Computed example of a mutant assay.
Amino acid sequence: MTTAPELVVPYITAREGEEADFLLNLRMYRGPDGQPQLGYVDEDPRDRDLKGVLWARYSMSLDAFGNPHKMPRWRLVHPHRQRATMALLRCQVCTVQLQRKDGILFLETADGQADYDGPVRTAQPPVCLEHARVAADR
Rank of each mutant, 00 (worst) to 15 (best):
Pro5Cys: 04
Glu6Thr: 10
Glu6Phe: 03
Val8Gly: 00
Val8Ile: 10
Val9Trp: 00
Ala14Glu: 02
Arg15Cys: 07
Arg15His: 09
Glu16Pro: 09
Glu16Ala: 15
Glu16Asp: 15
Glu19Met: 11
Asp21Asn: 13
Leu24Ala: 14
Asn25Glu: 06
Asn25Ile: 01
Tyr29Asn: 01
Tyr29Val: 01
Arg30Lys: 13
Asp33Arg: 11
Gly34Pro: 03
Gly34Trp: 05
Pro36Thr: 03
Pro36Ile: 02
Tyr40Arg: 01
Glu43Phe: 05
Glu43Gly: 09
Pro45Gln: 04
Arg46Met: 15
Asp47Asn: 10
Arg48Ile: 07
Asp49Asn: 03
Leu50Asp: 06
Gly52Pro: 05
Leu54Met: 12
Trp55Tyr: 08
Met60Phe: 08
Leu62Arg: 07
Leu62His: 05
Leu62Met: 07
Ala64Glu: 15
Ala64Ile: 07
Asn67His: 12
Asn67Glu: 13
Pro68Thr: 09
Pro68Arg: 11
Lys70Ile: 10
Lys70Pro: 10
Arg73Ser: 04
Leu76Trp: 07
Val77Met: 13
Pro79Asn: 09
Arg81Ser: 06
Gln82Trp: 08
Ala84Ile: 07
Ala84Met: 10
Thr85His: 13
Met86Asn: 07
Met86Pro: 00
Ala87Val: 15
Ala87Asn: 14
Leu89Met: 03
Thr95Met: 01
Val96Tyr: 00
Val96Gly: 03
Leu98Asp: 06
Gln99Ile: 13
Lys101Pro: 00
Asp102Val: 03
Phe106Asn: 01
Leu107Gly: 11
Leu107Trp: 08
Glu108Gln: 02
Thr109Glu: 14
Asp111Asn: 12
Asp111Gln: 06
Gln113Ser: 14
Asp115Glu: 05
Asp115Phe: 05
Tyr116Met: 02
Pro119Ala: 08
Val120Met: 09
Arg121Tyr: 07
Gln124Ser: 15
Gln124Ala: 15
Pro126Thr: 02
Val127Ser: 08
Val127Ile: 14
Val127Thr: 13
Val127Leu: 11
Val127Met: 05
Cys128Gly: 14
Cys128Asp: 13
Leu129Arg: 08
Glu130Asn: 09
Glu130Lys: 09
His131Arg: 04
Ala132Glu: 06
Val134Gln: 00
Val134His: 01
Ala136Ile: 04
Asp137Asn: 12
Asp137Gly: 09
Arg138Thr: 14
Arg138Ile: 10
Arg138Lys: 12
